[in-house]
Design a protein around this nucleic acid. Structure first.
Length: 208
DNA sequence: GCGACAG
DNA sequence: ATCTTGTCGC
């Protein structure tokens, strides 16, 4: 049972309009054992925030590498169900198919919502990859058990690359393109970055 | 048994 | 992920 927090529809006239990119992230408050989830939807390509949806709930499952979905999916689903707008694709802070079971957080969420999804993690879970160029946009394929499952992508010069992998109903090319196109000069693509700032803001104000 | 290990 | 301030580098 998740409790609703904030839900803002900033530009509802964009309902059903194409070009909506969403970002999702979750934060955890140890003190209260609470998880905060936020899904922010942006109008592409100007990247104008059009909706912010969030939810909170008690963490019912521990963090176990490979089983992140069991911990974060419930609260993320609650936030997603609260959203009025229907994004065309959602970028998650975690892996897509670059996962032991080919079902990382992004894949799992996309499947449950029947929504195209992309995984954009800050570090590796599985797979091997080679060095990549230092220019923004450089990529290097991530191979797991002989199969390409994603790519490390340079979103900023002199900064550690992000780990991109297809989530659901998108291929690697598309996943990489979305991450780069939705970026705003920061390492993390804007939708996910803003979702991250949002959940931490929610966590802070509760701990306060 | 040892090392690896999204958030 | 979270605990935490200033600080060195581009």
């Amino acid at each position: 049972m998740q409790k609703r927090l904030a839900h803002k529809i900033l530009l509802k006239e964009f309902k059903n309009d194409p070009g909506l990119v969403a970002g999702a992230d979750v934060a955890y408050s140890r003190n209260s054992g609470t998880l905060f989830a936020a899904i922010l939807i942006f109008k592409f390509p100007m990247m104008k925030l059009v909706e912010l949806s969030s939810a909170r709930g008690k963490a019912e499952f521990p963090y176990i590498p490979g089983l992140l979905s069991f911990r974060e999916i419930p609260v993320l689903l609650e936030a997603a169900e609260r959203a009025f707008l229907q994004p065309d694709i959602i970028i998650c802070d975690g892996q897509g198919i670059a996962h032991p079971r080919r079902l990382g957080l992004a894949s799992h969420l996309g499947l449950l919502l029947d929504l195209p999804s992309v995984g954009c993690a800050k570090s590796r879970l599985v797979g091997e990859y080679g060095e990549l160029g230092e220019e923004v946009g450089s990529t290097s394929k991530i191979v797991y058990k002989g199969k390409p499952v994603g790519a490390v992508v340079r979103t900023r010069k002199k900064v550690k690359p992000v780990f991109v992998s297809p989530g659901y109903k998108v291929d690697l090319k598309g996943a990489i393109r979305v991450v780069l196109d939705a970026g705003r000069g920061y390492r993390i693509p804007e939708p996910v970055r803003q979702a991250h700032l949002t959940v931490n803001r929610l966590r802070k104000e509760e701990e306060a």
